[in-house]
């Protein structure tokens, strides 16, 4: 084998598998929490599954987060009713991408410490606002179903962004700390 072929590719096999597993988890959680409603957890905990792309973005990098959010939403939409909305899929992808940016300003040790848990909660809120904002406003700009900017704000953006932000800010730090303690001592994880 030549020297060039041994160069590390942009997306490693681990990255490919992380995207696949993240996609499957996000889709499974969406379907599980939407169709097979848990008793007592309706409405308030609307889409607790948003913590999955956020966690995958944070732990495995922004591209993995984006793909898990995007494809996971495509698959769960296709399965629950057979539809496809590219702009909401991209919005969900952005929710996974933004927490992944933590790797650019936090060191590997900080990411799973107290500082990391606080920043992942903040990034989760930011990600929900940007991701859902993108989805709601492209709905208005391209005219998919709604015709006024006020609708985009009050009927789509605010409810989706607020519930996703609360769910993400609570569940993502829990997942990150659980993953850190589970992966401690295992080779080449974390």
């Amino acid at each position: 084998m030549s020297q060039e072929a041994r160069k590390k590719p942009l997306i490693t096999t681990t990255g490919v598998v992380a995207m696949g597993v993240g996609t499957a988890l996000y889709a499974a959680f969406n379907v599980f929490f939407n169709i097979l409603q848990l008793p007592g957890a309706q409405l308030v905990a609307l889409r607790p599954s948003v913590c999955i792309p956020m966690f995958f973005g944070y732990a495995f990098g922004p591209i993995v987060g984006f793909v898990s959010g995007f494809l996971g939403n495509v698959i769960s939409d296709a399965i629950s009713w057979g539809g496809f909305w590219w702009n909401w899929d991209v919005g969900n992808g952005l929710m996974g991408l933004i927490p992944g940016l933590a790797a650019y300003f936090l060191s590997k040790d900080d990411m799973y410490g107290r500082k990391g848990l606080v920043s992942v909660a903040v990034l989760a809120v930011l990600a929900s606002v940007i991701g859902m904002g993108f989805a709601a406003f492209t709905d208005y700009v391209f005219g998919y179903g709604i015709s006024t900017i006020e609708e985009a704000i009050y009927a789509l953006f605010l409810p989706a962004a607020v519930t996703n932000a609360i769910n993400g800010a609570i569940l993502t730090p829990i997942l990150v700390s659980a993953y850190a303690s589970a992966a401690r001592g295992r080779a080449r994880r974390v």
């Binding site: 490693t12 096999t13 681990t14 490919v16 598998v17 992380a18 597993v21 988890l25 959680f29 957890a41 308030v44 905990a45 607790p48 913590c51 999955i52 966690f55 995958f56 732990a59 495995f60 609360i166 769910n167 609570i170 569940l171 829990i174 997942l175 659980a178 993953y179 589970a182 992966a183 295992r186 080449r188 994880r189």
Partner: peptide, 29 residues
Amino acid sequence: VARIAALAPLIVPVTVSASLSIYDIADAM
């Protein structure tokens, strides 16, 4: 907050075991 946090016992085990298995699947591939 308590309601959402109450979902953790369901979400955490599935997610953590799935993310730990990523490396094994990648090795196998």
